[in-house]
């Protein structure tokens, strides 16, 4: 064991407790003022159930889309030299920096029926604003930097010699990517996916402007929580928050285990 382990572990636990656990336990504590049947009735309201499906579904799809396109962006940024690369690289971080409400209003304006993009989509029968598609667009926007920024450093460290070796051993480009590059990127890709997914689950600011917020159709769970708060029903609001929290935790834990498993697979293979 490294020296200073006890001290640093103690510090880690203290810090996590202060920043994460205490606020979260307040959520559980507030919820516990409800009886079990009240809790169950609240979290299984038809509008709430519909919103879980919508929130988790669109967040998952958006993270998936980002994993694919974000990987391409990272690849281009690492492997190619081109004019204005620095600027493109900096642009990737914009969704981080932009207040989400600004992002939401901008997207909603672009995709509205009379907007720059919306006017071309509407004749095709695609209604991007005030629909589930709009939520997907907003979540994809806010999630992009997570994938790019987690994959990019790993990709930079990837030695071209490995690919050259694979090629010299007779692998084609596709095999090189599938058998050599992707397994090494997988842990970073999964981390990025998990971050983008978690971020999308809690997103409120940008989505409300583009979603339309119609109950049962385009109302995400955070909107229901806000509605309960606005009616001063803190216990019900936290009850729904607990459902979000627990299911997010389970999903993220699952992704972490998957990541640990791919890591182990890689190291044993390389050894």
């Amino acid at each position: 064991m490294l020296p200073g382990f006890n001290l640093s572990l103690g510090f880690t636990l203290f810090y996590l407790g202060l920043i994460v656990l205490i606020p979260l336990s307040a959520v559980f504590w507030k919820t516990s003022t409800l009886s079990w049947s009240q809790f169950w009735d609240t979290v299984t309201m038809p509008t709430a159930l519909a919103s879980y499906r919508l929130t988790f579904g669109t967040s998952f799809l958006a993270a998936l889309a980002n994993a694919f396109f974000g990987l391409i962006v990272a690849w281009v940024l690492v492997r190619y030299e081109f004019f204005g690369k620095r600027i493109v690289d900096a642009m990737v971080d914009l969704p981080f920096a932009l207040p989400t409400a600004v992002a939401g209003i901008t997207l909603a304006t672009l995709y509205a029926q009379s907007g720059w993009i919306g006017r071309f989509l509407t004749p095709l029968g695609i209604h991007a604003a005030n629909s589930q598609l709009g939520i997907f667009v907003a979540l994809t926007f806010i999630g992009l930097p997570f994938i790019v920024r987690t994959v990019q450093p790993v990709l930079e460290d990837l030695e071209p010699e490995l690919e050259e070796a694979a090629t010299s051993l007779g692998a084609n480009r596709w095999q090189v990517f599938w058998r050599v590059i992707l397994p090494m990127l997988a842990p970073a890709l999964l981390t990025g996916f998990a971050l983008a997914f978690a971020r999308a689950l809690g997103e409120y600011g940008s989505v409300i402007f583009i979603a339309g917020n119609i109950p049962m159709k385009t109302q995400i769970t955070p909107v229901i929580i806000m509605a309960e708060l606005d009616m001063f029903d803190y216990a019900k609001a936290t009850a729904i928050a607990v459902v979000m929290l627990v299911s997010s935790f389970v999903l993220l834990l699952g992704i972490n285990i998957l990541q640990w498993w791919t890591n182990r697979y890689n190291t044993t293979n390389l050894a």
Partner: peptide, 11 residues
């Protein structure tokens, strides 16, 4: 007949 339910009056 309501296509959008904004959270507030200004919205």
């Amino acid at each position: 007949n309501v296509p959008v339910l904004d959270p507030g009056a200004r919205g």
